[in-house]
């Protein structure tokens, strides 16, 4: 009776002793897989499943919520980076296209230079670096052997003449300048005249003046240089657009220049031009005629006759 009362009074200590003893026994056994542990593990596994799933769901929701902001910022930064890359790529593509165009132009000029058996000239390839009042500024000057009144041309035709030469650059007076005068002739029948620039920005059509009223000039005729002064003979100037008669012994023709000086990047400056003799008379004509009878219809070069002599009836 006393023992029961004593146990009752010390109930908590007894419980403690029992629990500690059981725990120590379990610890002393050292077994991790007992039927008690396995049962508890199974029960806990089942019970903790909803908690684990809920935790995973909350984690996913949190990831999704934060992802809305983090991913947005990431996407924004990625978009900016891609825009920079795109801009760089577009610049590279533009550079490549520019290089390809330049390559094409240079190849065409090189081909033109090589395939001109009728000319013997030493061209200087120059680059147009500026344009002002129908004058082109090019990147070659005295240092590079450029002299005044050199012929400026492209594979399309005459561009103009060098008028102002500095040490490192020069200016080319274009066909459209009012002061530009070029000795010209109709390629078909060697009818001569002088091509003059309009001097207008509105109309770039040039005028071929001093054409004998009796000469045959037709729309569509190719106008070439006559080689009388600074230009080599036979370089294309342009095409006759129209012919008009004045109240005199002369008539004029509107000529559309073949080369557009304002759409050029490179051009030739002809340092030295030697025109073959057959070009003077025309190759086909010189081949057809015997040496004795090879009389050219062209005027002797240079044509030093006065206008009165040339055009007197």
């Amino acid at each position: 009776m006393n023992l029961a009362r004593h146990i009752h009074e010390s109930r908590s200590a007894v419980v403690l002793a029992i629990l500690v003893a059981l725990s120590l026994v379990s610890l002393a056994s050292g077994k991790r897989a007992t039927w008690v542990a396995d049962g508890l593990r199974a029960a806990i596994s089942v019970a903790s499943y909803p908690f684990s799933k809920a935790l995973k769901t909350v984690e996913r929701a949190a990831d999704y919520t934060t992802g809305l902001f983090v991913s947005y910022n990431g996407a924004l930064e990625g978009n900016r980076a891609l825009q920079k890359k795109l801009s760089a790529a577009m610049l590279r593509a533009a550079d490549r296209a520019e290089l390809a165009a330049e390559n094409t132009r240079l190849r065409r000029m090189l081909r033109f230079e090589r395939n001109q058996p009728k000319f013997c000239f030493e061209p200087v390839e120059v680059e147009v670096i500026g344009e002002f009042e129908r004058k082109l500024q090019v990147d070659r000057g005295k240092k590079h052997g450029v002299r005044e009144f050199m012929c400026a041309m492209t594979s399309d035709g005459v561009v103009g003449a060098v008028v102002d030469v500095q040490w490192l650059s020069s200016h080319v007076l274009t066909l459209h300048h009012a002061q530009c005068r070029i000795g010209a002739m109709i390629g078909r029948n060697r009818v001569r005249g002088i091509v003059r620039g309009s001097g207008s920005d509105v109309s770039r059509i040039c005028t071929m003046e001093y054409i004998d009223i009796n000469d045959d000039v037709r729309v569509g005729d190719i106008v070439v240089t006559s080689g009388e002064r600074i230009f080599p003979r036979g370089i294309v100037i342009g095409t006759v657009l129209s012919v008009r008669s004045s109240n005199s012994l002369l008539k004029e023709a509107d000529v559309m220049p073949a080369a557009n000086p304002y759409a050029l990047d490179e051009l030739f400056l002809v340092q030295k031009a030697e025109t073959p003799l057959d070009e003077v008379a025309g190759a086909a004509l010189s081949e057809a005629m015997t040496p004795d009878s090879a009389m050219s219809r062209a005027y002797p070069m240079p044509d030093l006759r006065s206008v009165q002599e040339r055009y007197a009836p």
């Binding site: 908590s12 200590a13 403690l16 629990l19 500690v20 059981l22 725990s23 120590l24 026994v25 379990s26 610890l27 056994s29 050292g30 077994k31 991790r32 007992t34 008690v36 542990a37 508890l40 593990r41 806990i44 903790s48």
Partner: peptide
């Protein structure tokens, strides 16, 4: 017991600690 079974401990490891702490605090 939950902690022991859920973790890698032998059953009774956490139990004895917590029982002693519970008794002492009580």
């Amino acid at each position: 017991a939950f902690q022991d079974v859920s973790g890698a401990s032998i059953l009774g490891h956490h139990v004895v600690c917590l029982v002693l702490v519970g008794y002492g605090v009580g």
